[in-house]
Design a protein around this nucleic acid. Sequence first.
DNA 1: ATACTGTCGATTGTCGACAATAATGAAAAG
DNA 2: CTTTTCATTATTGTCGACAATCGACAGTAT
Lengths: 225, 225
Amino acid sequence: MAFTPSENLPEQLAREISDKIIHNELKPGERVIEARLADEMGVSRSPLREALRILEKQKLVALTPRKGARVTPISAAHIEWYYDIFEALYSLVARRAAENATAEDRGDMQAALRQIETAAADHDIDAYYEGIFAFAASGLQAAQNPLLETLLRDLGPANRRIQYASLSSRASDLQHNVRFFQEMYQYLAAGQPSRVEAAARAYARNEKIFALKIANGDKPREDAP
Amino acid sequence: MAFTPSENLPEQLAREISDKIIHNELKPGERVIEARLADEMGVSRSPLREALRILEKQKLVALTPRKGARVTPISAAHIEWYYDIFEALYSLVARRAAENATAEDRGDMQAALRQIETAAADHDIDAYYEGIFAFAASGLQAAQNPLLETLLRDLGPANRRIQYASLSSRASDLQHNVRFFQEMYQYLAAGQPSRVEAAARAYARNEKIFALKIANGDKPREDAP
DNA sequence: ATACTGTCGATTGTCGACAATAATGAAAAG
DNA sequence: CTTTTCATTATTGTCGACAATCGACAGTAT
């Protein structure tokens, strides 16, 4: 019926569902029934089942053998777990990117940095996120480790989910975060892998405490009934 | 019939197939045909398909949308990629384990260390691996990060696959590797997370160069026709 | 009242059949 | 002899139906 030129049905379904999870239409802890979602989306259970396995890989749902799927809960502890792992993996990305980046990679990162800078100056959150994703993508490209790439790509949606929760309180400190990216780029261009790695670690730690602050006291995002 | 009280069919299939991959009965790059494997193992394609997705999560097969599954190739580059990630993740495990370990955790690790020591003294490779797995498991337990746990559990089979390839040349240097575990345990017991982390990094780096040495010049494992 | 047991409905697991797509090889054209 | 085109076959993708399992509830016994 739909005119989708050619993409994988399970992946497409997974993306749709992950959007719902990220935007909190499917709530943490909520059960996901295959049959219901399947005909809600107009497909059979087979592709939807595979979609659920993709979402499991992305840590958006937890799949228990004969009891079905539940949307992964998200608490302060979860946030700590995630950011610890992001720090570990992105610090590796940073080091390897610094060691292996080609001129083209550096160009891409510089372009991404520019976007980050102007977006932050304009308080344009969407452009800002676009920029940091591009920056990360260039770094991953430069790091030359496909396995690491898939691991982090799989964790991407979970990352976005956490960030979305703290999105509202975000606009104020964009300016402050820009420094991290500038630092990373400068050290990378200067060929100092250890410093790039350290900057990535510092950024990850900073993000972690920010997300935790939101998750506790401050205003988290809420959907009206 | 069999007495396995309750285990998941797809997971069971995945384990069987992963054994075949680890022991090189299914060769790197080889194509895996669903229908064939399915009735070779006496099941329908549905559970086998899910098994393939599990194996993909474990990086033992690569799954391309309309072209099926292939056994993941394994080269020197792959080994570098894997060990870089192991270093990043296990160094995190080490630090958090050092920070959070309970008395019971320390007891488990000490027991595992004992097994490692005696196994190395006896040149008993199986017992040695049992020991280091137990050591790692205790560390993961202590680290208190379930997400990290699942990530590393998923990478476990790929790890074993690499280790199996270098198994033959292993017996000689067991004695030498024991030091790393002794060091980790001692610093952990002494409450020095940074040193535990450093020891874990050193161990991972050491393993990496060892695996690379085997993958290049030395005698790799071969199966007779 | 509480704990146990059996039944019923809901949901997941597995299967075989069919449709859609990709790989193979053979014939035709250059 | 090489390349292109096309038909045939092999393989993956999707579906609906059925079987196995789980959760909740009612009924009974203690």
